[in-house]
Computed example of a mutant assay.
Amino acid sequence: MSVDQEIIDTLSGVTTATLTTLLLKKGLRNVWIRGARPIREGLPRIVGRAFTLRFVPAREDLATPESWSSPRSTRAAIEAMPEGCVAVVDAMGVTDAGIFGDILCARMQKRGVAALVTDGVVRDIGGVLGTQLPVWSRGAAAPPSVAGLTFANWQEPVACGGVAVFPNDLIVVDADGAVVIPAALVDEIVAAAPEQERLEAWIMEQVEQGASLPGLYPPNEENKARYEAAKRRQQ
């Protein structure tokens, strides 16, 4: 489940905005997890394999504090998380019950989890911030998860923020949110991403010099030739 360092190094320099463009060219439009926002400014771009968790609506006989000691619990799921993974939690967009608090986030941090991404919310926000675990969520709420949710399982396909996420998909998070790269497309996206970033950087240079957008963004044949010539001069 680990990610090659070369993939991490490459995608750490590619914005999620660029990744959504590349995935759109592959026909994938629904890859941005709705509602998952960084809970503090200045978080780095993070790349990791998805470790999925799934909640369902609360059912009174199951959503109890006693369930936290169950073999199938958020606590057990955290102990199964490998180092470097991104925990992706399907909380059905519920915003009045926090899926994890400071203690669970502290344990994830100790286990080397790269980040937590959810379409729900966390609780104990001050303590969560103190753990230094990078979190992308809809915000915070005081009630515990069992006030509105029942934990179902981990490492199975989930729907997080309206996006299908499978275990081992690649997750990239930055200030713009969280993007899912299907595992089967990772190599193609990694190969194409640096060139897309270089092209857009060149286009930005042209804009700053006063160039108009038609024929530049996207580039027509004339501007493609100018871009290729600029690349050759830099080599």
Rank of each mutant, 00 (worst) to 15 (best):
P167A: 07
R72S: 14
N223S: 04
V190R: 01
P82G: 04
A97V: 09
D9E: 11
R107D: 11
G84Y: 01
S12K: 06
L133N: 01
K224Q: 15
F51G: 03
R226Q: 13
I33R: 01
E156Q: 12
L149G: 04
A115F: 06
T52K: 01
R75N: 15
A76Q: 09
G161M: 04
E200H: 07
G27T: 02
R123C: 07
K26V: 11
Q109H: 12
L23H: 02
D169N: 03
N153M: 13
P38F: 08
I8T: 10
A164P: 08
T150N: 05
P219F: 06
D90R: 02
T15K: 05
E188P: 00
R34N: 13
D61K: 13
K26C: 15
A58E: 12
E188R: 03
L23D: 02
M1L: 08
R232G: 14
N220K: 04
P214A: 05
P219A: 13
R34D: 15
K110I: 14
K231N: 15
V122C: 08
R123V: 08
T16H: 01
R198I: 14
D4A: 11
V117R: 02
Q5E: 11
R111E: 15
I7H: 04
E208S: 09
A147P: 06
F100I: 07
P71C: 13
W32Q: 15
L28P: 10
N220L: 09
G101Y: 07
L116F: 01
V190S: 02
T74Q: 13
E195L: 14
V14M: 09
L24G: 14
A63V: 10
W136V: 06
R233Y: 10
C105R: 02
F100N: 03
A193C: 04
L19R: 00
V113I: 05
V47P: 01
L170F: 07
K110D: 15
K25I: 10
A183N: 13
A114D: 06
G215S: 02
A175P: 06
P157Q: 08
P144D: 13
I189C: 00
A76W: 07
N153F: 10
G112Y: 00
A58V: 06
G98H: 01
S212Y: 12
Q234I: 03
A106C: 12
G48R: 00
G101I: 09
F51E: 05
A211F: 04
E66P: 11
F51R: 03
P134G: 10
Q235H: 14
A91N: 06
V165W: 00
S212I: 11
Q132E: 13
R54E: 15
A114I: 08
A91K: 04
I99F: 11
V121M: 09
A178S: 02
P218Q: 11
F151C: 07
